[in-house]
Design a protein around this nucleic acid. Structure first.
Lengths: 207, 207
DNA sequence: TATTAATTCAACTATTCAATTGAATAGCAT
DNA sequence: ATGCTATTCAATTGAATAGTTGAATTAATA
């Protein structure tokens, strides 16, 4: 193999990976499985895609080795295949943010319009706050930010007594495109809490 | 706009960027323009693509705002549109390396077979060496690693007297898929120099 | 104004990708 | 062996992408 065909082969492999993430559904599926093992049924529901379409996209991700599978009796769980993939998607978000005014502004103006404040760790400084992970318990167990309290977004209303009204509540979920933290911030604010959403995007297993 | 359509819009934008880099030719063109402004003619020649095809791919990259253009009389120069793009491609390389045995091994076994030693900065430690940038002078001027000497790969044979045989020569070019540094290492070794290729991949403007 | 250089656009053909529908498969329990 | 649950596969239709050929456009020069 000479250096030209080597170059062509190598670029083709990289292009295949980029194509694998070059569809909105597959990007979302990857961000979901990065939070922990999930079944096809769970992924289809969370992402609001048809079952067959979800399975088709998962086959493509599997074909290019971005996901791997583990069967538990009749249920097949999909997981992220390598820790570099969430990093790659993080940089894709960064590039999207830098290149696309639509990407940059529609998210922030939506949150601004809904009166959802966002905050980064740097902005929090030494201020006292409760870090609230609103993902499912299985996702929290798979990996979460240090010091976070887990209250799944569906259970927030029935868990208000667990929270201290004197402290700032900083909620996060699966990434910047996940709206569960938005919903939680709104509900907590309505209930008299001082609640904001964490800005930092898609995290690795343990922060 | 509700949160679901916001999510869909945002993922579509990110997917478009991923699709834009989801072709071997476009990946190569991006790595070339990351080294400094280049004309269509130059890009077609360097990448060994037809002129029309090169132009078509550049239009697609421009459509998704990964490149921008600047006209100098009749010549149009293409440049990288944002510094996050080389970072994104760097992570794509990392993911390719982690996921694909072919990607990981064909490059290193090719170099191993051609007796081209590779070395990283960490491995160099405090050893004395000459850092040799073998790209074109225009690329070197656009940005290069600190302390590097520039001898374009086409001029290496006529520049041997510029190099100190008592020192290790560490050559680099545009990235891990660029073979110019391979060629230079071979020629220098044949001429009695102790020459290796730098491992670290695609760099930003100034190291 | 005509010519040249550099580049983009349009049309065509071939190939690949995406969503849906329905069939087939895999594993487990009875 | 049969039935159930969960999932994958195959075929179809339509959309999107890729490379080539040749025409058209843009800018500068004579």
């Amino acid at each position: 193999m000479n250096s030209i065909s080597l170059k062509e082969t190598s670029y083709s492999i990289l292009a295949d990976i980029a194509k694998a993430i070059g569809h909105p559904h597959r990007l979302e599926l990857l961000e979901l499985v990065a939070q922990g093992p999930k079944s096809v049924d769970t992924l289809a529901r969370e992402a609001r895609m048809s079952f067959a379409n979800t399975s088709q996209h998962l086959q493509r991700l599997k074909q290019f080795k971005l996901v791997k599978t583990k069967r538990d009796f009749t249920t097949i769980y999909y997981t992220i295949a390598d820790d570099s993939i969430p990093m790659l998607i993080k940089y894709l978000h960064q590039t999207g943010f830098n290149l696309s005014q639509d990407f940059k502004h529609t998210l922030s103006s939506y949150r601004s319009n809904e009166l959802i404040k966002t905050v980064s760790f740097e902005e929090l400084e030494s201020q006292e706050y409760i870090l609230l992970d609103v993902r499912e318990e299985t996702e929290f167990n798979f990996g979460h930010r240090q010091g976070a309290l887990n209250i799944p977004h569906t259970k927030i209303k029935s868990s208000l007594t667990k929270l201290d009204k004197s402290k700032l509540i900083v909620a996060y979920c699966r990434g910047e495109l996940c709206s569960y933290a938005d919903t939680v911030v709104q509900k907590l604010t309505d209930a008299g809490f001082n609640a904001v959403r964490l800005k930092d995007i898609l995290m690795t297993k343990s922060a």
